[in-house]
Design a protein around this nucleic acid. Structure first.
Length: 508
DNA sequence: TTCCGACAGTGGGGTCGCAAT
DNA sequence: ATTGCGACCCCACTATCGGAA
């Protein structure tokens, strides 16, 4: 199959806003692809690469050769070149990658170049990723979507699952099983503004567990071997020896456990997320780092214990299996209750201990991997500040033509100026985007045709955020975490905005 | 007919490792 | 030694479609 076939299908998918139409376009193409190219086609059309990452981003893709007129590149040829690019490493590799990219793009037409460029930068923007592709595979292979979804959960790779569905139908899909040592797509949580709201979503009685501000881990043990995976199924076994030892120290020899790894201070309180994140990401000198920034693991779910797959069991039974397999000090603190007041108190206690909040879990839901079902609902406290809009950036995609991304600042009474604390684009409705674009263009303090439009400090906006963290990027040495717009405050003048000192007081 | 679950898109800050400068 | 880039850790929120109610 030719790359141009995929590029044309992608264009058709992007042109139709209806989900069912997108699915039909994708299924039609999958019906034509041969078995040896099915995985490549499925990967590309759901915005992935079979290689996962190849060390090429937006910067390496600047300055590409002129396109050709005739499309001749096959999927196999493109895949082989991407494989060669990925294989480049060491001194001179950037130039070598650039040369191979030139060779690759020089063999493509304009439409193919555009498709591959967007694919490599992760910006396919055709309105179809995994979710839609699952349905398309089901349609093309004439199998139930639920079977495709189940196999994906267990296998973690849609191209592999899709190719199996296309070649062997339901029978081949049913052959996928949980395999110790191969990561399962992790279950995700919805969020709610309060514990009471979360209890309503999950249904009482429910389990309420601490939400730790660390890194999600899936630990596998088979005999005397252990492996640890992240949320995106990356293998981080070598970076977390404490966790490996903890798992190997358990009595069971056939385990898959879900949990969170976090750096705790000697007094037991959690380090800021930045500390845990840096520790987990470090691959050099892990041995000495574990002495200074030790990691602790807290498990909250069990997917396999003693040779039995638990995915389809309700939470209550999985947790019982967890308690039987793992000592209490390695299990996330948890309260089962139907009482909203009791749950609120548990939440308050977790937050006072420095944790991020809680996750409220239905006792009845199976491990619905890879989907944000109402089975798990997270609750976190929310801070707010009134800040001043210092500048705005023009939006992309569906936000093209709108000033979208806000630069936010706190008031500094000493200088009479404003100190930038970060940016946000979240929480804005189309109506608000239209309104603010109009306002910003009136308040522009300089040219409005660049990427950033600087404003006269005049508008105050109420911002919600999760916390203040240390920053080397911003002049005040601090930045907001997960900032989002709640509403504009036309009743406030910029000098009435919150001050730098008030923000500093929120630093951990 | 209305409601709501699931998806995709639109970007945020921080950290590490590596190659280039 | 410093800088830029790619990859990945954490992520919130709105619009939209289409099946559920």
């Amino acid at each position: 199959m030719l790359l141009i076939d995929l590029a044309r299908t992608s264009a058709a998918v992007a042109a139709d806003s209806a989900r069912l139409a997108k699915i039909r376009h994708l299924a039609e193409l999958l019906g034509r692809v041969g078995p040896d190219e099915a995985e490549i086609a499925i990967a590309y059309l759901s915005g992935e690469l079979p290689q996962r990452q190849i060390g090429v981003g937006w910067r390496s893709l600047s300055d590409l050769p002129e396109p050709r007129q005739i499309a001749t590149a096959t999927l196999t040829q493109v895949d082989a070149l991407l494989e060669r690019i990925k294989a480049q490493s060491g001194a001179g590799s950037q130039a070598a990658r650039r040369e191979l990219l030139g060779e690759l793009f020089g063999a493509l037409t304009r439409q193919e170049q555009s498709f591959l460029h967007r694919l490599l930068t992760g910006e396919l923007r055709q309105g179809a990723l995994n979710g839609v592709m699952i349905e398309a595979i089901a349609m093309a292979a004439n199998v139930p979507a639920a079977e495709v979804r189940r196999a994906l959960t267990l296998r973690g790779s849609l191209p592999a699952v899709g190719a199996a569905a296309l070649s062997g139908g339901v029978a081949e899909l049913k052959a996928f099983h949980l395999e110790v040592g191969r990561a399962v797509a992790p279950m995700l949580a919805q969020s709610a503004p309060s514990v009471t709201a979360a209890l309503e979503k999950a249904g009482a009685p429910a389990a309420v567990e601490w939400k730790l501000d660390g890194v999600r881990v899936q630990a596998h043990r088979s005999g005397d071997r252990a492996a640890v995976f992240t949320r995106t199924l990356d293998d981080i076994t070598a970076q977390v020896p404490e966790l490996v030892e903890a798992v190997l120290g358990l009595p069971g020899t056939d385990l898959v456990l879900d949990g969170e790894v976090i750096a705790l201070r000697p007094d037991g309180r959690p380090e800021p997320f930045q500390v845990t994140s840096g520790r987990v990401a470090s691959r050099t000198d892990v041995a000495s780092l574990r002495a200074t920034v030790p990691l602790t693991v807290f498990f909250f779910d069990a997917l396999r214990v003693g040779g039995a797959d638990l995915l389809d069991l309700p939470d209550e039974e999985r947790h019982a299996a967890l308690e039987a397999a793992v000592p209490a000090e390695l299990i996330t603190p948890r309260l089962v209750t139907a009482d909203a007041e009791e749950a609120e108190a548990f939440f308050g206690d977790a937050v006072r201990r420095g944790h991020e909040g809680v996750v409220v879990k239905s006792l009845r839901t199976p491990y619905a991997a890879g989907r944000r079902g109402a089975g798990w609902v997270k609750v976190k406290p929310r801070h707010t500040l009134d800040l001043v809009v210092l500048a705005a950036e023009w939006g992309n995609g569906r936000r093209r033509g709108w000033l979208s991304n806000l630069h936010l600042g706190a008031y500094d009474p000493e200088s009479g100026g404003f100190v930038m604390l970060g940016k946000t684009f979240k929480g804005l409705t189309d109506e608000l985007l239209t309104w603010q674009t109009e306002q910003f263009l009136r308040l522009a303090d300089g040219p409005t045709d660049g990427y950033v439009v600087t404003l006269k400090p005049a508008l105050v906006v109420e911002i919600a955020f999760d916390g203040v963290q240390r920053s080397s990027r911003y002049p005040g040495g601090m930045a907001l975490r997960f900032a989002r717009v709640l509403r504009y405050r036309p009743d406030k003048r910029p000098e009435e905005a919150d001050t730098v000192a008030a923000v500093r007081a929120l630093m951990p």
